[in-house]
Amino acid sequence: MQEAKLVAEHLTRAFGEGESRTVAVRDVSLAICAGRFSVIVGPSGSGKSTLLALLSGLLRPDEGRVMPLGVDLWRLSDAERRRFRLEHYGFVFQGYHLFPSLNARQQLEIVLRWGQDLPPRQARDEAIEMLELLGLGKKGRLLPGELSGGEKQRVAIGRALVKRPSFFFADEPTSSLDWERGRQVIELLRDAAHERGAAVFLVSHDTRILPYADCIFRMEDGVVSEEEIR
């Protein structure tokens, strides 16, 4: 087995207080390896999105710790944690969240120019290269409103991949796509893991994804009930 790139130990996170307190994630420990496509599945309300938020550093755990690349994420200052996310994390969310005024190429450029201070020409070339890899070479000038749902999600994936992250977190990336387009997106994410060496961690309730996964975590009532490594 490969060396773990991200280790989570005894993560617990609850919402609310008193009688309305709900424990979304309860004492979860897991490890995610580089170059592997990990999928976490479970019914709605099982705590899988909260776990993703905890692993990606977007949400502070009540207990436990998250250690990507051996770094205890919540021991870093806000600025250091942001810097870490900038250098190592990529995200894809369910709702695309593309800027309506930017075309496909500019959606990627904005990450490179604002995040990595690349000069405009270099950012443009790298964005075009990524779009071509994603099969969107001819769609670079189109605005989100002119793209199909699958294309939008591929642009969102491109936006996350263009800065070459070590970790790639995806929340229900296929939920608004038909299976054919959803499958293409899944293959892209799996390729990102296998060919780019990224640790891809995906949350979904769609079990059709499972045959593509290298690691499967099943979640129920805030607990990882089953772990399958292939």
Partner: peptide
Amino acid sequence: AARHEYAVLDAMGIPRRRIAVA
């Protein structure tokens, strides 16, 4: 109105200073 788009950039660690300048 664009806070979700900015939130994606924020998640990816894009400095808020850049968003503020924009």
